[in-house]
Design a protein around this nucleic acid. Structure first.
Lengths: 144, 144
DNA sequence: CCCGTAATGCAACTATGTTGCGTTATGAGA
DNA sequence: TCTCATAACGCAACATAGTTGCATTACGGG
């Protein structure tokens, strides 16, 4: 997905060693067009290199903590992981098909959110807004 | 939360028997100001009446299926359940504190979402849009 | 080369949710 | 009222997602 991201540099700028495990996880997530579950990431990484399930979870936690990845809860059983918004990747909404459970990234800029009304009454600090769209994907729509 | 909702009537209009278990679950969810986890619902119901954990899950699934409740994935470990939007309860965004994990309902109408850009390029059918806000709640903000 | 620290592996555990199956309760019809 | 079919429920077992503790390994600085 991202030929513009230098993963080694991203890791080192975040103060993390660019270990083979982290590089591999980051490449798998970054080269996939939609967010992936920890299990999928583990499976994919292990096709080319042995990496423990727990290690994958720890790498993911670390990368989310450093805001290199973002974790999404989209209605499936667990979290999904994708590249966090950065200079190359603007934030974008996510779509989840209610029938097949498939997840897609929607175009950035395709949604405008106006939070003025919330800010007027909400006493906390707003850091991030995530828009999730649910419906039927093109495939499931065709097949009835 | 809702003195305007007649739970028995809601259940019967959905074609579900108004069993004590369902009534109780619905009262617990409906009278709480923020969405609850299945475990919290189970605990609360069992303070006044024995109801199996599995039965609670099955009741929740049934009520979500009939669109009486809605299930939310807000970044915690599991789903949270709240009353689905209806004539008395407009849809509203949800806030989750990144520090304490607490969840709040934000005012309806406080957010405007413009999906025109998505509809132009997305081939599927959009059924529901959920806006999730993350940040620090007023409490956590004070305590640093 | 030695040492401290960070990363990894492995086993066990917790939390959340699901399935199968037998039992109980409820409402419709005889 | 009695019988029966069906829906709801309880319980045990299982499945999935994620976490914790601790031992081992790898890496970089002296």
């Amino acid at each position: 997905m991202c030929s513009r991201c230098n993963y080694r540099e991203i890791l080192e700028r975040a103060g993390l060693e660019a270990t083979p495990g982290r590089m591999h996880v980051l490449e798998v997530v970054g080269s996939h067009p939609a967010p992936l579950s920890a299990a999928e990431i583990h499976r994919t990484v292990n096709r080319s290199r042995a990496l423990d399930r727990v290690t994958v979870y720890r790498i993911l936690d670390r990368l989310v903590e450093k805001k290199i990845l973002q974790a999404l809860s989209l209605g499936g059983r667990g979290r999904l992981f994708g590249l966090a918004p950065n200079e190359h990747h603007p934030a974008h909404p996510h779509f989840r098909c209610a029938r097949c459970g498939g997840v897609q990234c929607l175009p950035p800029g395709g949604v405008r959110v106006d939070l003025a009304g919330v800010r007027r009454v909400f006493a906390g600090e707003i850091r991030r807004v995530e828009v999730q769209v649910e419906g039927l994907c093109a495939n499931c729509l065709q097949r009835g």
